[in-house]
Simulated assay, not measured.
Amino acid sequence: MNHIDTLFELGTSTWLDDLSRERITSGNLAEVIKNKSIVGVTTNPVIFASAMSKGTSYDEQIATLKEARTEVDEAVYAMTIDDVRDACDAFAEIFEKTNGKDGRVSIEVDPRISADRDATLAQAKDLWAKVDRPNVMIKIPATDGSLPAISDALAEGISVNVTLIFSVDRYQQVIDAFKEGIQRAEKAGKDVSTIHSVASFFVSRMDTEVDKRLEAIGTDEALALRGKAGVANARLAYALFKEVGSEGLPAGAPVQRPLWASTGVKNPDYPATLYVTELAGPDTVNTMPEGTLDAVLEQGGLHGNTLDGTKEDAQQVFDSLRGAGIDVEDVVRTLETEGVDKFVAAWSELLESMGQRLK
């Protein structure tokens, strides 16, 4: 038993927030699964941009794609799909043992089409077909334009990781979109027991943005609230999940688990395990960068279920933030815009650098 196993007993599955071909081919991914008890992987454009800019692992495939005169978008997705498929195979045993709950690997749609419902659905279907593994999850952002595509994809029987959630209000929309999709899938005759979904709620970015504003206000009241918004926001989301997450689901349909994303602390003054120890509880996932994963393995610090029964205190934190002068709604708008922009920038940079290598 290690601390990640203990976290699993509390109800939180640990997924690694990183993937590269080097991890797969070197045996590192298999080693991390065995020795660090991870039961899934998430990816995003930033992760793949970093992976493909280092080392020589992709050189052989790039040469093949270059010879075939493959368009750059198609080439990048060909490489990411291969990585995700191989990672799915590495997690196949866990997927079977957990009846599809874990053993999941996520791949994201092009962030540049997040405002286009039809394009998002079309790419989700294409990625689902090309990865061709039952344990893949297609990541779709929780933007106004993509919310309907989340329902559409689920209705098609596609498992979805809904990403870039920053507020409880948005999370309610995600829950509604999830339920609509599952209900449509049942009406279409799909086996809803095989359709899984997670809702990725971003944690540390909330603290980063709110702390910056608290420091600009500068009062003792404001400064005392630093480092509290991220955990409180996630706990309010969990309270909503407990209240309505399973209502109206067809028989046999799995609930859409909350997933804590962006769990590496950005402020070195905060404990490296802050967004793990304070967000442990039933029916959740925590996707961690390896630095956070190692900190939990080394330091532990778990102190039981830290989610149930926390709604009142979490709401008090947000009441105090508003009282101190924080415009919470503006914080959320800023984070959502920056979240999409960050992924678009990483994807565009990757396409540009890969385009040069394919010429």
Rank of each mutant, 00 (worst) to 15 (best):
S106I: 09
I107C: 08
I107Y: 04
I107W: 05
I107T: 08
I107Q: 06
E108H: 08
D110T: 13
P111I: 11
R112I: 14
S114K: 07
D116M: 04
D116R: 12
D118Y: 05
D118A: 15
D118L: 13
T120M: 06
T120Y: 01
L121Q: 09
A122K: 15
Q123I: 05
A124W: 08
A124E: 03
K125M: 13
D126G: 00
L127Y: 00
W128H: 15
K130T: 09
V131E: 08
V136D: 10
M137L: 14
M137W: 13
I138G: 06
I138C: 05
K139R: 09
I140D: 04
P141E: 03
A142N: 07
A142Q: 03
T143N: 09
D144M: 13
G145N: 04
S146R: 05
S146Y: 04
P148A: 14
A149T: 11
A153W: 09
A153C: 10
A155L: 13
I158T: 09
I158H: 06
S159R: 12
S159A: 10
V162T: 15
L164P: 12
I165E: 02
F166S: 10
S167N: 10
R170P: 00
Q172H: 14
Q172K: 15
Q173H: 14
V174P: 02
K179G: 11
E180C: 13
G181L: 11
I182E: 04
Q183N: 15
R184T: 02
A185V: 09
A185T: 03
E186T: 12
K187V: 14
A188Q: 04
A188C: 03
G189S: 10
D191G: 09
V192R: 12
S193Y: 00
H196E: 00
S200Y: 05
F201K: 13
F201Q: 04
V203Y: 08
V203P: 09
S204F: 09
S204A: 14
R205S: 10
M206Q: 08
T208I: 12
E209C: 08
V210W: 04
D211K: 10
D211F: 03
D211I: 10
K212N: 14
R213C: 03
R213F: 07
I217N: 11
I217Q: 11
I217H: 09
G218I: 04
T219C: 06
A222F: 01
L223Y: 01
L223S: 11
A224N: 14
A224G: 15
L225W: 00
L225P: 03
R226Q: 15
K228G: 02
K228E: 13
A229M: 02
V231L: 01
V231R: 07
V231H: 05
V231G: 00
A232Y: 01
A232R: 05
A234R: 06
L236Y: 00
L236P: 01
Y238P: 02
Y238M: 03
Y238V: 03
Y238E: 02
A239I: 01
L240H: 06
F241Q: 05
F241A: 08
F241L: 02
E243H: 06
V244C: 05
V244F: 00
G245M: 03
S246I: 01
S246H: 08
P250A: 10
P250L: 12
G252E: 01
